[in-house]
Amino acid sequence: MFEVLQNDTLAPNVHRMVIRAPRIAKARQPGQFVIVHPEADGERIPLTIGDADPQAGTITLFIQAVGASTLKIVSTPVGGSIRDIAGPLGKATDIEQWGRVACVGGGLGTAVLYPLAKALAESGNEVTTIIGGRSKPFIILAEELAAFSTDVLVATEDGSLGQQGFVTNVLQELIDNPDKRPSAVFAIGPVPMMRAVAELTRPYGIKTIVSLNPIMIDGTGMCGGCRVKVGDETKFACVDGPEFDGHLVDFGLLMDRLSMYRDTEAKILEELPKELRDKIIKVKR
């Protein structure tokens, strides 16, 4: 059992939870994830480790409640426990000296981006962070990211915070400015956003790393359910990823495979108590 030490709401249905997991905290590197299994008969959910404190033996997870299982996780109160957390899984981010990098986060992807951006900055890169979201309440971690970013630029679809539009608009401006053009881009967020970023940077030949979130079960390479196509090769995101070269990823296939259980998910959502269902639908739109 893994004790919950802190549980804050960052945005509608987005929680930051600090959890006691000494072994994971000690072993974890930026870019890695855990599999959280909230109840005996529940799903196994992959979640990026947002931060870790090896001395305190704690990890930080950012979780958006989008279904019955994630709702169960974020509903665990401080002092309560989560049944199973396994990890750290996946490959750590390859932190190189890029010079100037742009870190682009969309929605909850910003939370996944956070440890990566921090690690890039700590190793001497000049980090410009771009965060996007539907509207002001969905922009998360701006302050935390500002602590080590040269700039934090915000784009919202409704213009309620920062520039009105998408993260790609902001990124285009950076690329167009010779003083700010990044030599690498890290983009994490919804699949359409990552695809758009990869398409934007492709003609400029700017290295673009994305972090993929396919359906996963064991997280150890055992089942192959998380397979993604990268270039000509089929890769298992859980052991070969989750980060890949965005210019090689088959995003269409990824989106398609993510939709595999849409009917079942809709049915499960339908069976939830109305109050919880409304809460989730509101966030999902």
């Binding site: 072994r23 072993a27 396994a86």
Partner: peptide, 10 residues
Amino acid sequence: ECNVVVGKTV
């Protein structure tokens, strides 16, 4: 002890 992926956790 479940949830220990030897090679990753330790």
